[in-house]
Computed example of a mutant assay.
Amino acid sequence: MSMGEVTVRAADRPGDLGWVVMAHGELYAAEYGWAVERVTAGIVAAFAPGADAAWIAELDEHRVGCVFCVREDATTARLRLLLLDPAARGLGLGRTLVRRCVEHARAAGFSRLVLWTNAPLAAARGIYLAEGFVLTAEEQHDEFGVPLLGQDYELDLTA
C-alpha cells in the first residue's frame, strides 16, 4: 500500500466517538462475526474527556484507527478500543496508537497500564508484547456472541 498522509490526533471532533462505535461494530462483525457494538458503545459513553484521553488515526484525512486511555484508579490506566481499519494496516499506525497511549499514561503519573483483548487478535497482541506488556490472566467468555479466550495484559510504567 502506498503511504498517504498519516496523522494521529485527539479524538475531539464531531463524529469521532460515533465513528469509534460504528467502526468497531462493522469491522469486528465482518472480520470475526463478533457482536461488539453494544460493548463498544458503553465504553465510549463512559469516556470522560479531561480525565481520559483518546486518539484518532487518519490516512488522507479519513478516520482509520483509534485508541483510548482511560483512568481505572489512582495508579492504573486502561488501554481500550484499539482499532485499525484494514486499509491502514502495515503502516505502523497500530504501534503508534499504542505508544501514544503508553506515553500519555506514563506522563499522567500512572504506575501501570492494563488492557483486555481476545486471543484471535494476533496482530494487536504482537504490538502489546513488543511494547513490554505481560500476559497476566486468561478466561473464556461469550460477551461478543461467540466463545472466546479473553486475555488481560499489564505494563509496568515505573520500569
Score class of each variant (00 low, 15 high):
residue 107 A to M: 15
residue 143 E to W: 12
residue 75 T to W: 00
residue 147 P to K: 06
residue 114 V to C: 07
residue 107 A to R: 15
residue 80 R to Y: 02
residue 112 R to W: 08
residue 8 V to K: 03
residue 56 I to S: 02
residue 66 C to V: 08
residue 30 A to E: 14
residue 101 C to S: 14
residue 29 A to K: 05
residue 7 T to C: 15
residue 77 A to F: 03
residue 12 D to E: 10
residue 87 A to Q: 13
residue 24 H to D: 03
residue 17 L to D: 00
residue 59 L to M: 14
residue 67 V to W: 04
residue 62 H to E: 15
residue 46 A to V: 05
residue 147 P to H: 01
residue 133 F to P: 02
residue 101 C to R: 01
residue 36 V to M: 12
residue 31 E to V: 12
residue 35 A to V: 10
residue 90 G to S: 10
residue 90 G to R: 01
residue 16 D to Q: 06
residue 98 V to M: 06
residue 136 T to P: 04
residue 151 Q to F: 07
residue 67 V to M: 09
residue 57 A to N: 05
residue 7 T to H: 12
residue 97 L to A: 06
residue 19 W to P: 03
residue 79 L to K: 02
residue 41 A to V: 04
residue 15 G to D: 13
residue 33 G to Q: 05
residue 85 D to M: 13
residue 32 Y to K: 09
residue 109 G to I: 09
residue 24 H to S: 05
residue 73 D to C: 04
residue 94 G to S: 09
residue 91 L to E: 10
residue 50 G to N: 07
residue 33 G to S: 10
residue 11 A to S: 07
residue 98 V to N: 01
residue 4 G to K: 02
residue 102 V to G: 02
residue 83 L to C: 09
residue 147 P to F: 04
residue 105 A to C: 11
residue 36 V to W: 00
residue 84 L to I: 15
residue 156 D to E: 15
residue 153 Y to C: 07
residue 43 I to Q: 05
residue 109 G to P: 07
residue 87 A to S: 15
residue 76 T to N: 06
residue 93 L to D: 01
residue 20 V to E: 01
residue 101 C to G: 10
residue 128 Y to H: 02
residue 89 R to P: 05
residue 123 A to F: 03
residue 79 L to D: 01
residue 152 D to T: 09
residue 111 S to V: 11
residue 149 L to D: 06
residue 35 A to H: 12
residue 97 L to K: 02
residue 138 E to P: 09
residue 115 L to D: 01
residue 33 G to V: 15
residue 53 A to G: 07
residue 42 G to F: 12
residue 43 I to H: 04
residue 20 V to P: 02
residue 129 L to N: 06
residue 108 A to N: 06
residue 123 A to G: 11
residue 38 R to S: 11
residue 123 A to R: 00
residue 150 G to T: 03
residue 100 R to L: 14
residue 8 V to F: 13
residue 76 T to P: 06
residue 3 M to T: 14
residue 125 R to A: 11
residue 125 R to G: 10
residue 81 L to V: 11
residue 96 T to A: 11
residue 110 F to I: 02
residue 83 L to Y: 06
residue 78 R to H: 07
residue 128 Y to E: 04
residue 128 Y to A: 04
residue 153 Y to R: 01
residue 23 A to T: 03
residue 117 T to L: 03
residue 78 R to P: 01
residue 1 M to N: 06
residue 141 H to T: 09
residue 33 G to N: 03
residue 67 V to E: 06
residue 93 L to K: 03
residue 151 Q to E: 13
residue 82 L to D: 13
residue 9 R to G: 13
residue 153 Y to W: 13
residue 51 A to Q: 14
residue 7 T to Q: 13
residue 103 E to W: 13
residue 51 A to L: 14
residue 58 E to A: 14
residue 66 C to R: 01
residue 129 L to M: 12
residue 71 R to H: 10
residue 145 G to F: 11
residue 68 F to M: 14
residue 140 Q to M: 13
residue 66 C to Q: 07
residue 42 G to T: 05
residue 104 H to N: 05
residue 155 L to Q: 03
residue 100 R to Y: 08
residue 32 Y to F: 15
residue 132 G to E: 10
residue 106 R to K: 15
residue 134 V to G: 12
residue 12 D to Q: 08
